[in-house]
Amino acid sequence: MAKNLSNLRAPKKANTGRKRVGRGMGSGMGKTSTRGHKGQGSRSGSSLMRGFEGGQMPLHRRLPKRGFTNIFRTEYTVINLDRIAELGVTEIAQDDYKKLGLASSKKALIKILGSGELTSAMTISAHKFSKSAVEKIEKAGGKAVVLGGEPEAAKA
Results as ranks from 00 to 15, higher is better:
Asn70Thr: 07
Arg62Pro: 00
Met1Gln: 09
Thr74Trp: 00
Lys139Gln: 13
Arg62Phe: 02
Gly88Leu: 04
Asn7Asp: 08
Lys136Trp: 04
Ser6Asn: 08
Gln56Trp: 03
Asp96Asn: 07
Lys13Ile: 09
Gly17Ala: 13
Thr16His: 09
Lys13Cys: 04
Val145Asp: 00
Arg66Met: 09
Ala14Gln: 10
Ser105Trp: 02
Gly88Pro: 02
Lys12Trp: 02
Met29His: 12
Gly149Glu: 14
Ser33Arg: 13
Gly28Ala: 04
Lys3Glu: 03
Lys111Gln: 13
Ser115Gln: 10
Ser47Pro: 00
Leu5Trp: 10
Thr74Phe: 01
Arg61Gly: 06
Gly148Val: 08
Lys128Glu: 03
Lys106His: 04
Gly41Tyr: 11
Arg50Met: 08
Gly45Pro: 01
Glu75Asn: 09
Gly101Met: 11
Leu100Asp: 03
Ile79His: 03
Gly142Trp: 03
Met25Lys: 12
Ser125Gln: 09
Leu59Ala: 13
Met57His: 05
Ser115Trp: 03
Pro11Trp: 01
Lys107His: 09
Thr74Ser: 12
Ala144Tyr: 03
Leu113Val: 08
Leu48His: 15
Gln94Met: 13
Ala153Lys: 15
Leu48Ala: 15
Lys136Phe: 06
Thr16Ile: 13
Gly116Gln: 13
Leu5Tyr: 08
Val145Ser: 00
Asp82Asn: 15
Asp82Leu: 07
Ile112Ser: 03
Leu147Glu: 07
Glu138Gly: 00
Lys136Cys: 07
Ser42Asn: 11
Ala2Asp: 15
Ile137Tyr: 01
Asn4Trp: 03
Gly22Trp: 00
Arg20Trp: 04
Gly30Met: 10
Arg43Thr: 15
Leu87Pro: 02
Asp82Gln: 14
Glu53Ser: 08
Glu86Arg: 06
Gly149Pro: 00
His37Gln: 13
Arg50Lys: 12
Ala85Arg: 14
Leu100Met: 07
Ser47Glu: 07
Thr32Ser: 07
Glu91Asp: 11
Arg50Ser: 12
Leu59Cys: 01
Ala153Leu: 07
Lys3Met: 04
Ala126Ser: 11
Ser104Asp: 14
Gly116Met: 12
Leu147Lys: 10
Lys139Arg: 10
Leu109Pro: 04
Ser44Leu: 09
Tyr97Ser: 01
Pro58Asp: 11
Arg9Trp: 07
Gln94Thr: 06
Asn7Met: 06
Lys143Ile: 05
Ala14Val: 11
Thr69Ala: 14
Ala103Asp: 06
Leu5Cys: 05
